[in-house]
């Protein structure tokens, strides 16, 4: 600890100095504070509302402005800034990846739907102050009032819809309706704000029933899957069967053509032969017979020749040594 000795003499001396110059000091202080409180700056996003002795006097645009010191005072209202209120959640930190918390805001988002179910609706109201005079002087706690309007308005709108509507098709419509409703009530209150946008965030079934709602989605997926599988099995089998059927028919056509052509061919050959045959039947027949024999007989295995009474040879013939194919002419 640094030693510090209080020098009474010195203090007394400087105090006397101050007393001596008291008038000058007072004048300087007064003038300075007058100057400081005369000039002031209104930021780019604000307007300055000036009251003279408590009464509203004028509204100033942004830039350097002045007022009568001590008599006039200024309240700056950020009319250009878009402000927002969150319902059902709170942004805990803003950044590239903002984080949100639901703590303390659960009661805001849980509401009754028209079919007496419950839904959890989170939303954001973006607004701007468009009438600084009304905003300052018509309603006490305008922000809190806007929250009340917004909460009751959302419940009024959700209260007229089924839980299915709220959770699925109704989202955009609800946001639009709520914007109009908040604006209407705000105008009634002369709140001096303009609702720029109402954005619905998470609209979900309440936590305890969420599993059941997911089960519906899963079942829906399951249904699609089952149908798709059946369709795919169908598509695997039927076109192939069609192709195979076509093949069978084509083959039959082929067979038919072959059969007819063959018969025509054979008949043509027969007819040619017949033309010649009819001229000399005996000779032709013999010729064909012998030609055939010439061809056939050399190829034959064993040849056994008997006379017409040689039938008794047959029983002794060991047929099993050969293939057993015997033709008795």
């Amino acid at each position: 600890m640094a030693e510090f000795e209080f020098d009474w003499d010195k203090a007394k001396e400087s105090f006397q100095k101050i007393v001596k110059n008291i008038r000058l000091i007072i004048v300087v202080v007064v003038v300075l504070s007058a100057v400081i409180s005369t000039f002031f700056q209104v930021g780019a996003e604000e307007v300055g509302v000036v009251t003279r002795l408590g009464a509203y006097n004028r509204t100033l645009e942004s830039g350097l402005n002045f007022k009568i010191p001590f008599v006039e005072s200024v309240i700056k209202v950020p009319v250009e800034r878009q402000q927002k209120q969150e319902f059902g959640f709170r942004t805990t930190s803003v950044g590239v990846q903002s984080t949100f918390s639901k703590r303390g805001a659960e009661g805001e988002s849980l509401m009754l739907t028209g079919d007496l179910n419950l839904a959890d609706v989170e939303w954001v109201v973006q607004y701007r102050i468009d009438n600084p005079y009304n905003f300052l002087f018509k309603v006490r706690n305008p922000e809190e009032t806007l929250r009340d309007i917004s909460e009751s308005g959302m419940r009024q709108i959700v209260g007229d819809r089924t839980v299915n509507e709220v959770l699925t098709v109704g989202r955009a419509e609800i946001a639009g309706k709520l914007k109009v409703l908040i604006q209407e009530i705000s105008n009634d209150y002369e709140l001096g704000i303009r609702v720029e946008q109402v954005v619905l965030q998470d609209v979900t079934p309440p936590e305890p029933v969420r599993g059941a709602f997911n089960a519906v989605n899963e079942a829906q997926q399951e249904k699609e899957t089952l149908i798709n599988q059946a369709k795919s099995a169908y598509n695997k089998v039927i076109p192939r069967a069609r192709g195979e059927a076509e093949e069978t028919i084509q083959k039959a056509e082929g067979f038919a053509t072959e059969r007819v052509n063959n018969s025509q061919g054979e008949v043509a050959r027969f007819n040619e032969l017949y033309t010649e045959y009819i001229k000399a039947p005996g000779v032709t027949k013999t010729r064909i017979y012998l030609e055939t024999m010439q061809e056939v007989v050399p190829k034959l295995g064993d040849k056994i020749i008997t006379d017409e009474k040689g039938g008794n040879v047959l029983p002794l013939l060991n047929m099993s040594t050969k293939s057993g194919k015997a033709i008795n002419q």
Binding site: L300, G301, I305, A326, Q329
Partner: peptide
């Protein structure tokens, strides 16, 4: 002629080296 040709054809088709033929002297 047809039946004759057919029987000739049958000969050709059915006779081979494994066939044993017993020809009687009064066969054709």
């Amino acid at each position: 002629l047809y039946s004759f040709l057919k029987s000739m054809e049958t000969f050709q088709k059915t006779f081979n080296s494994e066939t044993t033929v017993i020809l009687s002297t009064d066969s054709d």
